[in-house]
Design a protein around this nucleic acid. Structure first.
Lengths: 347, 347
DNA sequence: TAAATATGCGCAATCGTTTGTTCTAGTATA
DNA sequence: TATACTAGAACAAACGATTGCGCATATTTA
């Protein structure tokens, strides 16, 4: 293999005595358009192949203003919910020859802002962001700058930008309604980060379910402030210490329920006999848990695919967005973590 | 905000009446070296900040031959084992201002090869690869090309390239030995992709544990051919159908054990009463499973961090690698999925 | 006071591609 | 035979940043 270093268009051009522009045109499939002869075309292609030419995307991007690269900013890629989305974005990207630059914002708005800067410098064609905070100032400024952006998992009412989210309202409503149907009346809610759309919508669903039944919401049953495992643990500890103890817990994420389970275990309580639980986020392991978990499943692979396609079309239309937002249904997956209370058990 | 479009060095230079080279030198912190006056330095910095200058990494990379970008090729980013590694790589990268281009090879060698090409074109400074197949030809050719590469999770004896792997041999040995200590004698092994170093080493450990005890290996107890969930399901089905049935199953990955659990459930068997199981890969949910799972824990975050640092130092030393390979211990996490057999239960 | 050195910065080439324009033959048309 | 096309390809200017070298002044040294 004569792969001395890096083969450039000029290398090829010199090798066969044509100009680099000719080589470029052939290799980008513009032979016809620029009337390159079949013979020349053939020779160029052969030589390129023989030398193992790989076009320099930096140079190309510099010239064309298109890098076929997209930025993906995720709060925590190790969370299977996000990594599943990421995977589907990557798979779509590959299909059209795009690459994904991954940025883990570590649930930190400051890092998120830094990531945006970084990715802008890398001249990504567009950005898919799962924003971490309540504030959308930095997002607004980048959307205004004309860079195509798609938001996932969250949305901001005052931000004019396409988004893909689950129907968190309906999902929470269904879950809590199901609790009601199983005769639960005291349902704790371990929420995620407050003031995010995800959380707001789920809370709204939680309240709406109560309202529909004409039941008041006990505000002291709403605890927590993050989507992490630790918060699940703490939230459950608090809920379980109340008396009377709530009979059910609604956990706002897979990590929250994991933490909650640890707390429940520590208190030597059994699911669902002592406490019922429903968790947002279906996971491969949900059915294999000590008590198979009733969950609210979000469509992660669809989220990824749609987000990418939304971004793509936005890029192709040169930043002009046509779609407003897409809401994907969230579906309750029934398992064993909710007990049907007999009326005798109710206080 | 006067962020018309993209601010370049020239924009700044014109604005304040200096040359773009001066601006460049100031902004890259070379004022002293090139004797730029404090006054000029100050003005340049202010103007750059005011205009919101973000250096074009494409142009910079084209000129400097350094992109501060690394490629990461992973078989399945939605697998928490890999996403955990990916996360730690990204966190390290961020610390030094590097970006990660993520490529999901979808367990397909062909896609892996494509990914390598793609990333080469994007002029990554280096590559971290978790190779999917048994073949290392394509890896060898890229290592020879001088591009810094670090292999993770696997290694190839004939490939001169730094790697970071778990001590799969020891991990498997410990697991199987523990089975023996609990009086198991018939231990099924649901293996992953054959002929990968991971699998080879685990098999070696499995065999060595037998050998140490002077016990023969029943080859029919070694089943399976992939690290996926489906294979776990099928493998378990096969093992459970044998008679006499093995008393224990060693699952070569988190996904395999997940699949195996489904099969075990279908057969209406209980862990550990009817069948004991140990799984490779510790997961956040391991302790919350129907039967808390005894696992072989790999150090995923360390793997990511070390891999990145290995790559970094290789890049800084301009491709000359000094390290051979790093083996991280794998630790048995004891839980409840292994039953101590009474001798009466042995055939 | 002449020579030497220091200070502060600009010139212009370069990285590898793309692309609008131009150039040169050969061929067709009038 | 002069003119007009056409085919085929080269020229050269970008894109934005970096960097070796050079060029003026200003200051110091002998």
């Amino acid at each position: 293999m004569v792969q001395s270093k890096h083969i450039t268009l000029d290398n090829i051009a010199n090798q066969i005595g044509v100009s680099s522009s000719t080589v470029s045109r052939v290799l980008t499939g513009q032979s016809k358009k620029y009337r390159i002869s079949d013979r020349t075309t053939e020779i160029v292609q052969q030589t390129a192949r023989k030398l193992g030419y790989v076009p320099d995307q930096l140079a190309r991007g510099l010239r064309t203003k298109r890098t076929n690269t997209m930025g993906l900013i995720i709060p925590d890629i190790s969370n299977p919910f996000f990594s599943s989305i990421a995977r589907n974005i990557e798979i779509q990207a590959r299909k059209v020859g795009s690459s994904i630059i991954l940025s883990d914002s570590q649930e930190d708005t400051q890092l998120e802002i830094e990531s945006i800067r970084l990715l802008q410098g890398r001249k990504v064609d567009g950005l898919i962001i799962c924003p971490v905070g309540e504030d959308s100032k930095h997002l607004k400024s980048i959307v205004n700058s004309g860079l195509p952006v798609v938001i996932i998992d969250r949305y901001f009412p005052d931000l004019d930008c396409p988004y893909v989210v689950s129907d968190n309202y309906q999902g929470a409503m269904d879950a809590v309604t199901y609790f009601f149907e199983m005769n639960h009346r005291s349902i704790g809610y371990i929420q995620g980060r407050v003031n995010t759309s995800v959380n707001n919508d789920r809370i709204r669903g939680y309240r709406a379910a109560h309202e529909t039944r004409g039941l008041p919401v006990d505000e002291s049953l709403i605890v927590g402030d993050s989507f992490g495992k630790r918060n699940g643990y703490i939230g459950a500890k608090i809920l379980l210490a109340k008396s009377p103890r709530p009979t059910a817990i609604f956990a706002a994420s897979n990590l929250i329920s994991l933490g909650a389970m640890t707390a429940i275990q520590e208190e030597r309580l059994k699911i669902p006999d002592d406490i019922s639980i429903i968790s947002f986020d279906e996971q491969p392991y949900s059915e294999h848990l000590a008590t198979p978990m009733t969950t609210v499943a979000q469509q992660t692979s669809e989220t990824g695919e749609i987000a990418f396609k939304l971004l793509q079309s936005q890029i192709q239309q040169d930043g002009k967005q046509t779609t407003e937002g897409i809401v994907l249904p969230a579906e309750l997956v029934y398992r064993k973590s909710v007990k049907k209370l007999e009326f005798a058990e109710l206080q």
